[in-house]
Design a protein around this nucleic acid. Sequence first.
DNA 1: GTTCTGGGGG
DNA 2: CCCCCAGAAC
Lengths: 257, 257
Amino acid sequence: MKIATFNVNSVRKRLPTVTRWLKTHAPDVLCLQETKVQDSEFPVAALESSGYVATFRGMKGYNGVAVLTKSAPDFVSEGLDKGPNGDGPRLLHVVVQGVVIVNTYIPQGFKIDHPKYQYKLQWFSRLRRYFSRHFDPHQPIIWCGDMNVAPLPMDVHHPEKHLTHVCYHQEARDAYHKTLNWGFEDVFRRLYPDTPQYTFWDYRQPDALKANRGWRIDHILATTPLAQKCTAVEVDVQPRKGKMPSDHTVLWAKFAI
Amino acid sequence: MKIATFNVNSVRKRLPTVTRWLKTHAPDVLCLQETKVQDSEFPVAALESSGYVATFRGMKGYNGVAVLTKSAPDFVSEGLDKGPNGDGPRLLHVVVQGVVIVNTYIPQGFKIDHPKYQYKLQWFSRLRRYFSRHFDPHQPIIWCGDMNVAPLPMDVHHPEKHLTHVCYHQEARDAYHKTLNWGFEDVFRRLYPDTPQYTFWDYRQPDALKANRGWRIDHILATTPLAQKCTAVEVDVQPRKGKMPSDHTVLWAKFAI
DNA sequence: GTTCTGGGGG
DNA sequence: CCCCCAGAAC
């Protein structure tokens, strides 16, 4: 089973990138974040003709998540909680081929002294509760998406310069790790303990890609029974290098199931 | 000498269309209207590498005219008058290969009961004065551009439905013809007195192009000595049919000089 | 429909 | 830098 995650920064703007990637890589599952589109405008048809079923939950202008699968999921749920405060456009939980997949777009947090940052930190604890409430770490579960956290110094260029950045600040890393420690493993780091490899390069940073000034903030995490079956993980930089790129690129992992 | 006119509706958005057209048709002169770009942002380099010198006068967001020539013009002037009321971004007057070329983007006029319509009508009389002040009808002069006037019933689909439209209203046609009668001939009508042929199809009209519901409002006019040497005129519908089209298309004419 | 503007967001 | 939105223009 091949599963991928990609913060598209508008699924409508990135439709050619997405369909080409699906064609080339034929993943079983592609999780998207920042689709930035209302459900009524989600490009279902284009993805259908690429051979994928789209499960999506979006809103006007911001956020939005989607899961593309080769066949319809056996189960679908959205948001951390029921109701309007559940942040539907940030979490999709599906079951495909017996595997639970939780696709999240974690709040970025703006600045460490802003209420949005507290919201981000709380999001991780709410998510940990979500996992506890619904699953057991012995189940095969994948948690993936844009976590807006670079877990280790090697996961950001010039870490010492970013100590107060919402994606590297100690509290954010702690909150992320606490949720991860519910029962997940970072499959990229499992296979490549020492390889610096980014998944995001800021549009605003000039020559960010050329100079490789990026961040590893997109992750695929798996519970131990699944992580043990992970045979390959790769960051595909191609989409970021191509034309009309998202600021993120695709991360994928293969599992022997 | 081959000269063309094209309302691009943003020269930046239409750069691929323009460069492809230059490559395919190799005109001596291409006049552009609605470039919608400040002079500091005009895409000089891209047009230079197509082998053309760009003379341009634009503003932020609206209007803007340009003349592309194979070599630098011998003379350049902008606007109907000196100063801020001269409407520089609506008129460029250049001299190339001994031929005067006046490229205009005539005000559209909004609605016939609006002050903008009076401004449009006045524009034609100011332009006639411009011709009188600067030229003689015996000189070889070309006046071309987006005139925002369909001169004859055959120049608009359903003329009877557009009697109060600012581009077909009698006063607008009269104003246009009065300026034309200073000493110009419509070279398209000279060669094709009875052929309905549009140059503009409204984006908003569904299937406008397919159903050919358009307007002939872009024109190439020449003083008699030059008009007599006109050997070919054509509306090239290709750019309007292609992807990312302007709402106008290219009109070109060839002169045996 | 398509492109601008300006403002918000990352 | 690139995306969204709403509003204006044609």
